[in-house]
């Protein structure tokens, strides 16, 4: 593996992470650092372990009974897998899925879902936090009068930004995006990318994407995964102009994948 010099502060450190499902390896010995307040893009062809990697970061992988994880994932220096209760971890590390999954209830209830689970129920408090989250997700102006509508009625792009708002509402430190634009049109995609670029001021972002151009547009750094291994990681500007591994070059210039 080839790597650039380390960034300023490490938010998540990953050491020798290996994940297998029923004995079949999905992620092999991945070691990398995710710098704080940056966007790390992860690119790679299908089945290269990108989504598995994300789900390991916030331990959603725990719910796949056949999975086996070894290695370490350090959030601010603490191993996330030490605590036998992943709930507080998930409040610090949010995730946005490929397809927007609004829960079949109102827009407002979607935004405050995580807050209510923390026991916050005051109307004023929830109103204020919902407005802030929706504003940060660039959705407030479009739907401030539609908070009581069913979330399913929003457009696909709005639904995805609602999912972002819902994640922001629980005030995480890290947000994982799992191909968040794969089901969206170019205009909705642009809005989400714009949101991500603003969000990195306050959050650390990991973006898994199939779209190398998107990785180039928004990622401060880019990591290239292939068949479960990390091939190369570095500053995006450098990765896309002078990749150091031939496979990276082949992939980003569209010769396979």
């Amino acid at each position: 593996m080839v790597s650039d010099a380390r960034g300023p502060a490490v938010k998540i450190g990953v050491e020798s992470l290996t994940v297998s499902f029923s004995g079949k390896p999905s992620l092999r010995d991945v070691t990398l650092d995710i710098p704080s307040h940056e966007i790390l893009s992860i690119i790679g062809p299908a089945n290269s372990g990108k989504t598995t990697f994300l789900k390991t970061l916030n331990r959603l992988i725990d719910f796949i009974p056949t999975s086996r994880v070894t290695g370490r994932v350090l959030l601010d220096g603490r191993d996330v897998r030490e605590d036998d209760d992943p709930v507080s971890l998930r409040r610090q590390v949010g995730i946005i899925f490929a397809l927007p999954v609004p829960l079949p209830t109102t827009v407002f209830e979607n935004v405050v879902y995580g807050l209510r689970r923390q026991g916050k129920n005051g109307k004023k408090e929830l109103d204020a936090l919902a407005e802030k989250a929706l504003t940060d997700a660039y959705l407030w102006d479009e739907i401030k009068d539609r908070l009581d509508e069913q979330a399913m009625k929003l457009s696909g792009g709005q639904q995805q930004r609602l999912c972002i708002a819902r994640t922001l509402a629980v005030d995480p430190q890290v947000i994982l995006f799992d191909e968040p634009c794969s089901a969206l049109d170019p205009i909705s995609t642009a809005k989400i990318e714009e949101a991500m670029l603003k969000l990195k001021k306050n959050y650390t972002i990991v973006l898994v994407t199939n779209n190398t151009k998107q990785a180039a547009r928004v990622g401060d750094r880019t990591a290239f995964f292939l068949m479960g291994s990390l091939v190369e990681m570095g500053l995006t500007s450098r990765m896309f102009t002078s990749p150091r591994d031939k496979r990276t070059d082949d992939y980003i210039s569209g010769r396979f994948g």
Binding site: N58, L60, F63, V87, S88, R90, R91, G94, I95, F97, L99, V101, L103, T105, Y113, G114, R116, R117, Q118, C163, R166, T167, V170
Partner: peptide
């Protein structure tokens, strides 16, 4: 759908809260 459970858990709900608020309704 399984995705409802994943969403709920990823928002920091406990397993029981997920069942109570994202599955049973």
């Amino acid at each position: 759908p399984q995705s409802f459970r994943e969403v709920s858990l990823s928002l920091g709900a406990t397993k029981l809260q997920t069942i109570r608020h994202a599955v049973l309704p």
